[in-house]
């Protein structure tokens, strides 16, 4: 009996060890590239090329960031990205929750067909829309404007779906009480239902912010003037064509760090909402 238990104990220790080994190995694989990115952005160019693996910049210089802000259009890209992202996020949160609420709660003719249409639109792969979106923007005379960057993606089927699922999960009784008190549909929605929807609204805010902050292809088909470049577009222009030739890496990586920081902060603060967002996406 004793030997059996001893064996068992040894096996548990061994598998715990193997488990941690796997976890730590992969944590390094997933995180170390960011460490390399951050440290290289504080290195001198020769040092970054010579010691790409070393996490400690020696000497530590901030030249790359000076250059990013002074000799590229980074301030413009940051500003554009901020305007576009905030507008899209606010729009999506409002419009998607209105539509989600109507589809979940209001009885109107055509509701079922509309919901099926939303599901169908969810299934349309984004890349198929590159050229079509460009065509429509040209036709409407919107091409190469801020409107083109914002309006076409200010509502999305995925967000409508998430909000509908959420509103279906909250009890009807509260709304009904408000209705009996004489509140109209809009009042009920705005001051009773939306405040209860906080968790879903935060999730939607975060995934909208993240996806529009990172968005590249829509910018490619919506605008062409450098004045309207968002950060991913500017960054892509900054690096494209270089094909791994070792020049200016601290500068490019510094610009990439700036593109990563806002989402990284939100990720750290609101991690559980990100997790929820990933799993809501799975329910589609």
């Amino acid at each position: 009996m004793a030997t059996v238990r001893g064996n068992h104990g040894a096996r548990t220790v061994a598998s715990t060890f193997v488990g941690y080994f796997i976890l730590i190995f992969f944590a390094l694989v997933f995180i170390y590239p960011f460490v390399i990115q951050l440290s290289a952005s504080f290195k001198t160019e020769p040092n970054a090329a010579l010691n790409p693996l070393n996490p400690v910049p020696d000497p530590f210089v901030t030249d790359a960031y000076h250059k990013v802000f002074l000799s590229t259009d980074m301030p413009l890209w940051l500003g554009n990205s901020l305007v576009v992202t905030v507008a899209i996020t606010l729009g999506r949160v409002l419009l998607d929750s209105m539509a989600g609420y109507a589809l979940a709660r209001l009885r109107f003719r055509g509701r079922k067909a509309l919901f099926s249409a939303v599901i169908a639109i969810l299934a349309v792969p984004g890349v198929v829309l590159f050229i079509p979106k460009f065509l429509v923007l040209k036709q409407f005379g919107m091409y190469d404007t801020y409107t083109a960057l914002i309006l076409p993606i200010i509502a999305d089927a995925g967000g409508v779906f998430i909000m509908k699922q959420f509103f279906e999960s909250i009890p009807r009784s509260v709304e009904e009480a408000a209705r009996i008190d004489g509140a109209g549909t809009w009042r009920t929605f705005w001051s009773v239902v939306l405040p209860m929807g906080r968790p879903a609204l935060i999730t939607l805010t975060i995934i909208s912010f993240q996806s529009s902050w990172n968005e590249l292809p829509h910018s490619l088909v919506a605008v062409q003037s450098p004045d309207l470049y968002t950060l991913p577009r500017g960054l892509a222009v900054l690096v494209s064509g270089s094909l791994g030739s070792g020049n200016q890496y601290p500068l490019k990586l510094g610009a990439a760090v700036l593109a990563t920081i806002p989402v990284a902060i939100i990720f750290v603060v609101f991690q559980r909402y990100f997790v929820r967002g990933a799993n809501e996406g799975a329910d589609k």
Binding site: P52, G244, T260, V263, F274
Partner: peptide
């Protein structure tokens, strides 16, 4: 969190990092 973090970051920024790593 460590395994999930790369999924939320910008594909363009990550591509820049990989250009550097695989140079």
């Amino acid at each position: 969190a460590a395994f999930f973090f790369p999924s939320v970051t910008s594909s363009v920024a990550i591509s820049v990092v990989f250009l550097f790593i695989f140079a």
